[in-house]
Design a protein around this nucleic acid. Sequence first.
DNA 1: AAAGACACCTGTCCGC
DNA 2: TGCGGACAGGTGTCTT
Length: 235
Amino acid sequence: VPDQLEQRLSGLQISGVDRRAKYLLLRTEPGTLIIHLGMSGSLRIVDDTLSPGKHDHLDLVFDNSKVLRFCDPRRFGSVLWSEEPLEQHALFKHLGPEPLTAAFDGHRLYLLSRNKKQPVKTFVMDNKVVVGVGNIYANEALFEAGIDPRRMAGKISLRRYLLLAEIIKEVLSRAIEQGGTTLKDFVGGDGKPGYFQQQLKVYGRGGESCPVCDTTLKAVRLGQRNTVYCPSCQR
DNA sequence: AAAGACACCTGTCCGC
DNA sequence: TGCGGACAGGTGTCTT
């Protein structure tokens, strides 16, 4: 939480709420409050009589006696204040397109991957390529697309990238519909857990059998992240 | 320049 | 049962 945030925000009105990549943006006239929920963060509207708990780090107090409360047990989230246009902000200016927009497609994946030697999984998780594809959904999308996550990004055909981009869109859309993926204690803004974890086909299933062909799913490490794939379905 | 390693943090889970 | 250690996640930074 930035220094002197209290003085800066005091008296301001929120003029709009946006999102860019995994950052939430609360707009005010002089600047933007940028909030990242990390992996365990949450924002909740509570009554101002409810006292903060152990992991509550910030209260935005409104004049209707409601509080927007930021809780983040694992402290992977962050809160920033910016008065510059966000396109110029260091956090945002190199970000790739939103995954569910037309600006993200297989042609982009193909073009940006030429001559790249990194594995295709770390490539699609790179925020400069496309935002919003975290470890869970990268694993799932590569499985659905039948692509071995270890394959060199630069050696994958346009045809396969066209398929992969469509599948990334489809997997993310489906996960959003289901309310996200609840692994430990995640709950959505409505207080309910997500249900997408019931549809996970490979993530977290290393050593189990492939839901399609029964081959034993393999777990490896790519870019310091757990990676699970089917050696038979994914090539 | 590109790719990989590492750090941050702490609740949860596993094995002894 | 208690306790220590590994692990997970996104992203900025440092190292090859």
